[in-house]
Every structure is written in structure tokens, then in C-alpha cells.
Design a protein around this nucleic acid. Structure first.
Length: 634
DNA sequence: CCAACCTTAAACAACG
DNA sequence: CCGTTGTTTAAGGTTG
């Protein structure tokens, strides 16, 4: 019995190590996988809401009890991978296609919304009647569940539309539940509304109208700016519903806030910038506009954010589909027939969403110079998506492993910084390699060293995705730690910690970046338009990046500062930035090798987190756990 | 088609 | 003995 590949090989200590290890790419997500992810997101989302998002996880080791039936994985349909499409089609074709696709998607989505709403209402009505006429105990629970489902649907819709708005996919939803008809921006003609309203209530014709609207979106190619006129409420993405809440919550609630802001901007609300990840305070619209143009111009960062945003939207769409499916199953189970289109009793989000789009696009908030847009202009044919990122988005959402994206387009820290909220809650796989993630985790800490377990915790804390298959990714993490030279293990009092040898880590980057003209070309065609420069900056940023939790800092000081600094000095930059995090100036973070890592207690746990996390849904008990453990040997 | 990368899986050792 | 931490090796997939 000779073991096939048994190779305990005691001797070789790292003999095989390649000198240039990379972290460049991202995980190869298969189409099926991505779908699976989406489904998982949906599930988790629901679970979170359903459980009132209070998961009593006291220790880091245990997962918050979110179990996702693997069975879901079976449901992945066949689909053409974006990658394949990319191979087959030329960039222009791709773009056109993408555009088309989005239009269709939107359209379908809206129809979907509508139908779902109808059905839901029907259900409700039926149920209520039934409930009145007969006590029917057993139905109680189900009904609750139902209503919850309904609420979730609504939320989803809201969220989705908001997201669409945020990225300019949709001009603006007049009603959309959050905006009272009266306060509709001038962009929408009342007449249009009325007509649509009629159609809507007529139930049948609605689809047609929606279709028209959907098409409208596409045809409307000439107008470049989409995120112009809109009074949009700030993303109310996460507000979990109280568990058993049964009443239909009218979206009204935030409508008031809109009315308060006269000449508003979709990205501006409550005195702060609503750009994902950025909560910069701006006193007035003017200031905000200025801020927008300086901080969120067309650069790599914005692009990346846009991409993620698109991802979010996609996830939500899929999620919605999934939930709807589920809902139907539920209804089927309860012997309710979602047929017979019945006029609903109250304005539905979805309806209003369908309403929108029409004329809105040309409206332009006067105060908006819009330099970014102009930069985007070259991409004329595209209109409905953030064209700049569209193609890259294509990569990004699919199975494609865009190794370049990390290096060229999306600095991990930047993307993370802006979207950690997203990754935290959505079960999507972060587009970074394990190596870069690990590094990020380590660099984030004041001492730049973490125990394995702390790294684990960081993963689970920062990414919903990593709350799932722990065995797998933990193994991968360990694997990466061992494999890459840039990760240095340091013996410590309380065990061993891992540090990053920035030098090593950086070592391989330059060759990669300059090394392949193909990549660059690809990138240009993909990202296009001035992204090259951005890529450079991205690489820069990636190399030197710190905390994700303080968006402000990243937005301004680090990002801009970085650009000016020059890539050679990354390390110094790192130092600078990190000093922000308040840690004892350690002269050579890199060569920590033998240090016992004396007293790194620097107890400043929450400080960073506190800045941004208000609405984080996930209770990190481990957070404390993780921060404290350091030996407070007084 | 190949090489380079990355991820995943798994065997195995050292340690507490 | 078990679980964690580290190391290695191998295989499979993607990309250039």
C-alpha cells in the first residue's frame, strides 16, 4: 500500500517557495457560485430581519447561527459568464449588450415588483377576510410570516430603487413610496403621473406602461446625467423591522425629510454626503456639490464604489427574485392563489417606481457643475448605467476573476473602506485575494500584528461571506499565511502573531503592474477613460492603506495625500496614516521578527469602529472579545 | 498549450 | 485525545 501522494517531506522548509508571490487576483467566483451567493445573501438578509437581528453570539468561535441550507446551491441555472461574453464580444458590443441587459433587467424587475405587490395585497386581503370570518388559529403565525415577507419585499424594492438611483441607473422614482407625490420634482409631469396612476390601478395595462418606461430608459441615450434630479431619501437600507410587526408601514415616514431639502441632490441628505461610505458633512448643497466634485470625481475610487453599488443592486435583484419565489411557495402552501389581479387599496412603491423615469432625466439640479459627468461623456452611447464602470462591473459581478481589478482598479483598502458596510451584510465574496485581505486585516490594527484567531475574527467581522464556510476559508487563510513570504510569524508572549512584511508584499507588485501590456490594454478597454491614471493610483492606494473604518480620512487625507506622495514611499505613508490610529511609533514594523511584542496594549478599541457604525446590523460581540484579549499585563 | 496565480482540499506535525 | 495552528502538497480553474 503505497500512498499515492503521501509526502510528509519533513525536510523541505519552504524550499518551494516562489519568490514572487502575489495576491493580485480575486477569487474565481463561478457563475453558479455568484448566484449561490446571492441566494445566500437573500437568506441571510431575511434571517437577520426575522430574528430581529439579535444573535447572541458570545464567543468568536461560534458562528451567529445563520445556517444556509446548501440545497439552495442546486438551483443555479446555466448562464453565460460575463467572461465568455467578454471574450466573444468586443468592448463596444459588450457595452451595448450590457446596456440592453440592464434595460431588460430593470423592466423585468419593475414588472416583477408590480406583480408581487399585487399578489401580496391580494394575499393580505384574503387573509384578513379569512381571519375575520373565522378565528383560524393556525393561520396566525403564517400570516405574520406573510406580512413580514411583504414588508421585506417592500424594503427590497425600496432599497433596490434607491440603489438604482444612487448609481444613476434610474433617473428618479417619483413616488417610490418614499417621496410623496406632491413633492415630486418638477421633472415629472403631473399628467404623466396621473395617467400612469390610472393605468396602474387598472391593473392590466400597467405592464405595458412599465415596459414603455423601461424602454424609455434605454432609448434615452443622449442624456448623460442620470442622477440629477431626484429627491431621494437617504438609503434606508438597514433598518431591520421589529420582529412581529404586522402593520403595513407606510413609506411615508421619511418623506418629510425630503420636503425639507429644496434643491436637493440624490446624494445629499441630512446635511451629509450620501455617497456610499462617505458621510462627510456639508452644510448646504453648494458645499456638498463642491465636495462631490472634489471627493467623488471620476477616479478610481468612485469607479470602484460604483461597481460595488452595482453589485449591491444585483444582489438585491436576485434576492428579490428569490424572496418572491419563496413567497409564492408560501402562498401555494397556504392554498392561496395569487391570481386575479385586484386593484390594490393603496399606493405601492413598486407602482410609483414604475412611474418614474420618463421625463426626469433631463432635469438638472442647477447647482451641479458635474465635472465627473463630463469626463464620463465620451461614453456617449451608454446611458443607463454608470457607464464608466459598466464593463468593469461586468467583470466584477461575474465569475470572472479579475485579478487586475484588484491591482489596477480597486485598491482593496479603498473599496473596502467604502463598502465595508456592504460586505459586512451582504453575503458576497469580496473581490480580493486572501493575501490582500489578510494583509488588510493586519495593517488595520494599531500594532499591525494579529493572531491567527484575530485574523479569523476580522474576516468574519468584516465580511458576511466569511461567516459561512469557516473550515474552508480558514484553511485558506492559514495556507496563505504560510505560503506567502510577506506574512511573517512572530513569537509573542501570548503565542504567535502574524505581521506583514510590507517590503515583501510590495516586492512583487511593480513587476506585475508594468509587466503586462495586455493587462493595461484590457483595463483601458474595460475601464476606459482616464482610468489608467486611476489604476496607478489604485495600486498606490492599495499598497499603503490603512483603516477602513474612517471614511473621511480615506476620502481626503489618505487618498489625496497618497497621490502626491509617490509610490515609493508607501511605507512611510502607511506610517503616517496609521499614526492616526494612535499607536506607538514603531520604527520598523517590517522587521518585527524576533520581538516579543512587548506591550502593545494601546487600548483604543472602538474608536475606529465607532465613527461609522451606526447601522451595522451585525452585532459583534467578538469585537470586544477580539480587542480586549491582548494581554493587559499592567 | 503553457506558465503563473489563486483557491480549495487535505495530510501531517507541533502544541496546549 | 482533541482542537488549534502551521506547513506542504496536490488538484482544479482562470488568465495572459
Amino acid at each position: 500500500g503505497a500512498s499515492p501522494s503521501a509526502g510528509p517531506s519533513v525536510g523541505g522548509s519552504g524550499a518551494l517557495r516562489r519568490e514572487e508571490e502575489e495576491e493580485g487576483s480575486l477569487p474565481p467566483a463561478h457563475p453558479a457560485v455568484s448566484l449561490l451567493q446571492a441566494l445566500q445573501v437573500a437568506r441571510q438578509f431575511l434571517l437577520q430581519q426575522a430574528t430581529g437581528l439579535s444573535s447572541p453570539s458570545s464567543n468568536e468561535g461560534k458562528q451567529p447561527a445563520v445556517q444556509v441550507p446548501v440545497s439552495v446551491a442546486m438551483m443555479s441555472p446555466q448562464m453565460i459568464t460575463p467572461q465568455q461574453m467578454q471574450q466573444i464580444l468586443s468592448p463596444p458590443q459588450l457595452q451595448a449588450l450590457l446596456q440592453q441587459q440592464q434595460a431588460i433587467m430593470l423592466q423585468q424587475l419593475q414588472e416583477y415588483y408590480k406583480k408581487q405587490q399585487e399578489q401580496l395585497h391580494l394575499q393580505l386581503l384574503t387573509q384578513q377576510q379569512a381571519g375575520k370570518q373565522q378565528p383560524k388559529e393556525p393561520l396566525g403565525n403564517k400570516q405574520l410570516a406573510f406580512q413580514q415577507q411583504l414588508l421585506q419585499m417592500q424594503q427590497l424594492q425600496q432599497q433596490h430603487l434607491l440603489n438604482l438611483q444612487r448609481q444613476g441607473l434610474v433617473s428618479l422614482p417619483p413616488g417610490q413610496g418614499t417621496v410623496p407625490l406632491q413633492t415630486l420634482p418638477q421633472a415629472v409631469c403631473p399628467s404623466d403621473l396621473q395617467q400612469l396612476w390610472k393605468e396602474v390601478t387598472a391593473a392590466q395595462p400597467v405592464e405595458d406602461s412599465i415596459k414603455q418606461e423601461g424602454l424609455d430608459l434605454t432609448t434615452n441615450t443622449s442624456n448623460s446625467t442620470s442622477f440629477s434630479a431626484a429627491k431621494v431619501s437617504p438609503p434606508i437600507s438597514h433598518h431591520p423591522l421589529p420582529n412581529g410587526q404586522s402593520t403595513m408601514h407606510t413609506p411615508r415616514r421619511d418623506s418629510s425629510s425630503h420636503e425639507e431639502t429644496p434643491g436637493s441632490h440624490p446624494l445629499y441628505g441630512h446635511g451629509e454626503c450620501k455617497w456610499p461610505g462617505c458621510e462627510t458633512l456639508c452644510e448646504d448643497l453648494g458645499q456638498f456639490v463642491k465636495h462631490l466634485n472634489t471627493e467623488h470625481a471620476l477616479d478610481d475610487r468612485s469607479t470602484a464604489q460604483c461597481r460595488v453599488q452595482m453589485q449591491v443592486v444585483q444582489q438585491l435583484e436576485i434576492q428579490l427574485a428569490k424572496e418572491s419565489e419563496r413567497l409564492q411557495a408560501m402562498m401555494a402552501h397556504l392554498h392561496m392563489r395569487p391570481s386575479e389581479p385586484k386593484p390594490f387599496s393603496q399606493p405601492l412603491n413598486l407602482v410609483s417606481s414604475a412611474t418614474l423615469s420618463k421625463s426626469t432625466s433631463d432635469t438638472f439640479p442647477d447647482g451641479l457643475p458635474h465635472p465627473p459627468t463630463s469626463a464620463t461623456a465620451p461614453i456617449t452611447p451608454l446611458r443607463q448605467g454608470p457607464s464608466v464602470i459598466s464593463s468593469s462591473t461586468l467583470h466584477n459581478m461575474g465569475p470572472i476573476r479579475r485579478r487586475n481589478s484588484e491591482k489596477f482598479c480597486t485598491p482593496i483598502s479603498s473599496e473596502l473602506a467604502q463598502n465595508h458596510e456592504f460586505y459586512k451584510n451582504a453575503d458576497v465574496r469580496p473581490p480580493f485575494t486572501y493575501a490582500s485581505l489578510i494583509r488588510q486585516a493586519i495593517l488595520e490594527t494599531p500594532d499591525r500584528q494579529l493572531t491567527l484567531n484575530e485574523i479569523y475574527n476580522w474576516f468574519t467581522r468584516m465580511f458576511a461571506y466569511f461567516r459561512r464556510n469557516t473550515a474552508t476559508w480558514k484553511n485558506a487563510v492559514r495556507h496563505n499565511l504560510s505560503l506567502h513570504k510577506c506574512f511573517v510569524r512572530v513569537e509573542n508572549v501570548k503565542g504567535a502573531v502574524w505581521t506583514v512584511d510590507e517590503h515583501e508584499y510590495q516586492k512583487r507588485r511593480p513587476p506585475k503592474m508594468t509587466g503586462s501590456p495586455t493587462l493595461v490594454k484590457n483595463m483601458i478597454s474595460g475601464l476606459g477613460y482616464g482610468a489608467l491614471n486611476a489604476s496607478y493610483q489604485a495600486a498606490l492606494a492599495e499598497s499603503s492603506f490603512p483603516l477602513l473604518n474612517s471614511p473621511t480620512m480615506i476620502n481626503t487625507s489618505s487618498a489625496s495625500g497618497m497621490l502626491h506622495v509617490g509610490h515609493d514611499d508607501v511605507s512611510s505613508t502607511v506610517e503616517q496614516v496609521n499614526s492616526n490610529g494612535s499607536f506607538p511609533p514603531r520604527s520598523h514594523p517590517v522587521h518585527v521578527k524576533e520581538e516579543p511584542a512587548e506591550a502593545e496594549d494601546d487600548s483604543r478599541p472602538v474608536s475606529l469602529m465607532a465613527t461609522t457604525n451606526q447601522n451595522v446590523t451585525i452585532p459583534d460581540d467578538r469585537d470586544l472579545e477580539e480587542e480586549l484579549p491582548v494581554e493587559d499585563l499592567s
